[in-house]
Simulated scan of single mutants.
Amino acid sequence: MNLVLQGPAASMPELRRIATLALPARMLELNPHALRCEQVDDSNGVRQAVELAALEARVDATFIDAARTLADYRLVAMDMDSTLITIECIDEIADMQGLKPQVADITEAAMRGEIEFAESLTRRVALLAGLDASALQRVYDERLHISMGGEAMLAGVKGAGLKTLLVSGGFTFFTERLQERLGLDYTHANVLEVEHGKLTGRVVGGIVDAVGKMQTVERVCADMGIDPEQAIVIGDGANDLKMMGIAGLSVAFRAKPVVRQQANIALNFTGLDGLLAILG
Rank of each mutant, 00 (worst) to 15 (best):
D273A: 03
V46Q: 00
G45W: 08
Q97G: 07
L182M: 10
P13V: 06
M244A: 11
V203K: 10
K198H: 13
P24D: 10
L267K: 01
L165E: 05
L35D: 04
L199G: 10
V59Y: 11
T172D: 13
I93M: 12
S11W: 06
P13M: 07
V217I: 08
F269C: 12
Q261Y: 12
C37V: 06
G130H: 07
S250A: 04
G156D: 06
D236N: 10
D236T: 03
V46E: 00
L21K: 12
D227V: 06
R124A: 08
L30M: 06
A9F: 09
L184E: 01
A104V: 07
V233A: 13
A9T: 09
I85E: 13
R16W: 07
E51D: 14
R26K: 15
Q230N: 08
M96W: 08
D95I: 09
P13F: 07
G161F: 06
A155W: 03
H33Y: 10
A54T: 14
L121Q: 02
H188Y: 14
K242V: 06
V191G: 06
L192A: 04
A118W: 03
N44W: 10
D132S: 05
L267V: 01
E176G: 08
V59T: 11
E193F: 05
A66P: 10
V220S: 02
D81K: 09
I85K: 12
M214I: 07
I115Y: 01
V50P: 14
T86V: 14
I115G: 00
M12D: 12
G170S: 09
V50I: 13
A61M: 09
E193D: 13
I18P: 14
R68M: 14
V167N: 11
